[in-house]
Design a protein around this nucleic acid. Structure first.
Length: 515
RNA sequence: GGCCCCAUCGUCUAGUGGCUUAGGACGCCGGGUUCUCAGUCCGGUAACACGGGUUCAAAUCCCGUUGGGGUCACCA
């Protein structure tokens, strides 16, 4: 029977959950789901100085938001799975066990070399054009020398001893056969500090073994760690997992995507109003495609068509234009109900609407009774219900690319006074008095409308517009008066939502600007 | 600098020796669509880094050059 596939995503909580991490997480997730394996979340917090709980929470929250569920590891409710703990900071005993074993078998040794001296020597080697490399000095310490130094509690680290010159090769699932020479990896490298706390590479190897990880899918920046990890696996007698090194996501300057490239944190994309499914869809297409022309994928469709073999080897630049396009595609697919729910937080945070609860009724969070929520428009000093807001934002469902655009598009619906220059009302070469006449006519028409429904408004207004010969001479001043904007939804839709009184009021205000 | 990786339109990519006057998508440009913008539809712009081989035939295979990237910590 084939071993169950187990993959892991193992971020270190030293910064906010990054766009690059989204990709690594996604690909691990897809691989696990595709082959019915387990997806493990492990937190690599061996660096106590830089690791923060805040960042760990951010990892979990982001993964939740993205809907990338994991089978094992840390969750908001604690740990789940049979290989706990899933924080490396709590797995010290595992590491110690193997460190002692290596020490005993003389595959690892204590090194008392001065940190600063080594640093200088590395710099020197580099200047001379040589590969920086530890000379293995402390390997040849006699037992006496070593125990004396240990006795004195001298500063030290533990290094893995590289026994022979050899070629370390492995078959990378995306890159094919990769070779490194053992003497080129920088000499005997450090696996643990003085307090026996493991360093990344060592902790990683031990955990992957202990957690029975079968496939390691990670960024290309780890490629040069792989030979070190293989050497440790050999020293420890572990089987090596399969590796796949994914190309990196690049910034516009073609460097590895990083903080200096504007937004890289997942939460920032969430705040800007990108949908998680759109973000994942965009990211999966960076360096991977199914071989046909399809571009819009749900998570389950991705699982179905995903194969690591189709991952490209070269890095891909993060192009926000394409992301915007994909996001807009997903936004269009939302129902009007879903769309208004998504827009609401943006309208609230920009101060356009305030949710309020009717007396004697409580929001669901306070008792589960379906509460009637009304919304107060502070600028117009009126209360409306969700249906009205839904009408407003629905006019823009097909137009916006990211949710945060909604407030500045619809703000005129929520304002009492519109601030615009009177020139905005003028259509092409019309004179001010012609515009006033046009507005007068529109007011008259609006007042005469019997039923405030779209086809009545449309019929009356378009009739007049046709009569004028130049449709814009009627429609442009009309729309500008209602919106105060150069660009907006169509005039008839706007009037319909605004209602007769407000429509007429705005037309009159516009007229007053010109006289 | 050593080592490693990579190389098709501006960007993401299809292409695995003949089906290719190199296809799609984003962007950009132009046009249609009962006002503007947007959307939508239609059309257009634009690429095999270079040089050698191999072959009847190369974007596709090999070598080199150039360019780009990654990595060289008591970080992960």
């Amino acid at each position: 029977m084939q071993k169950k596939i187990r993959v892991r995503f193992s971020p270190s909580p030293t910064g906010y959950f990054h766009i690059g991490s989204v990709r690594t997480a996604l690909i691990n997730y897809l691989y696990a789901k595709k082959y019915k394996g387990d997806f493990v979340l492990r937190i690599e917090d061996t660096d106590k100085e830089r690791s923060k709980k805040e960042y760990e929470d951010d990892i979990i929250r982001s993964l939740d938001w993205l809907n990338l569920s994991w089978d094992e590891g840390l969750t908001e409710e604690g740990e789940k799975g049979n290989y706990a703990p899933y924080r490396q900071s709590e797995r010290g005993d595992f590491y110690k066990k193997y460190i002692f074993r290596l020490l005993e078998e003389k595959k690892a040794y204590y090194c008392f070399c001065d940190k600063e001296k080594l640093k200088k020597s590395r710099e020197r080697q580099r200047e001379e054009g040589l590969p920086p490399r530890y000379d293995g000095n402390c390997f040849s310490l006699s037992d006496k020398e070593r125990s004396d130094l240990l006795e004195k509690n001298a500063d030290h680290v533990i290094r893995l001893h590289i026994t022979e010159k050899e070629s370390i090769e492995f078959d990378d699932m995306v890159r094919g056969r990769v070779k490194f020479m053992s003497e080129e990896i920088g000499g005997d490298f450090v696996i643990a500090k003085k307090d026996l706390s493991a360093l990344y590479n060592f902790a990683c190897v031990v955990d992957d073994y202990e957690m029975k990880i079968t496939h390691i899918l990670r960024g290309e920046d780890h490629l040069s760690n792989t030979p070190k990890q293989i050497l440790m696996q050999r020293a420890l007698g572990f089987d090596s997992p399969r590796y796949a090194h994914l190309s990196l996501i690049l910034g516009p300057d073609k460097n590895k995507l990083s903080k200096r490239h504007a937004a890289v944190s997942t939460y920032q994309y969430r705040e800007m109003g990108y949908l998680p499914e759109a973000l994942l869809n965009f990211i999966v297409l960076l360096g991977w495609n199914p071989g046909d022309d399809r571009e819009i994928y749900s998570l389950s469709e991705m699982i179905e068509s995903f194969t690591v073999e189709r991952c490209r080897k070269s890095g891909a630049i993060f192009d926000v234009n394409k992301l915007n396009f994909i996001n807009s595609q997903y936004l269009k697919k939302k129902s009007e109900k879903e769309f208004v729910e998504l827009c609401l937080p943006y309208l609230i945070s920009s101060g356009l609407v305030e949710p309020s609860f009717k007396e004697d009724q409580y929001p669901p969070a306070y008792g589960g009774v379906q509460a009637k929520i009304t919304y107060f428009l502070p600028q117009r000093e009126i209360s409306i219900d969700l249906t009205w807001i839904e009408m407003v934002v629905s006019l823009y469902k097909e137009k916006i690319k990211i949710l945060s655009e909604i407030s500045s598009e619809v703000d005129f619906f929520f304002k009492k006074e519109l601030n615009y220059e009177k020139e905005l009302l003028i259509w092409k070469k019309m004179t001010e008095s012609e515009v006033v006449k046009s507005l007068d006519k529109s007011i008259e028409i609006m007042q005469s409308i019997r039923k405030w429904e779209k086809n009545y408004i449309e019929k009356a207004l378009m009739e007049e517009a046709e009569k004028a010969g130049d449709r814009g001479s009627v429609l442009w001043p009309f729309r500008a008066a209602l919106t105060g904007k150069k660009a907006s939804a169509g005039p008839i839709d706007v009037a319909l939502v605004l209602g007769p009184e407000e429509t007429i009021k705005r037309l009159k205000n516009a007229k007053n600007k010109l006289i």
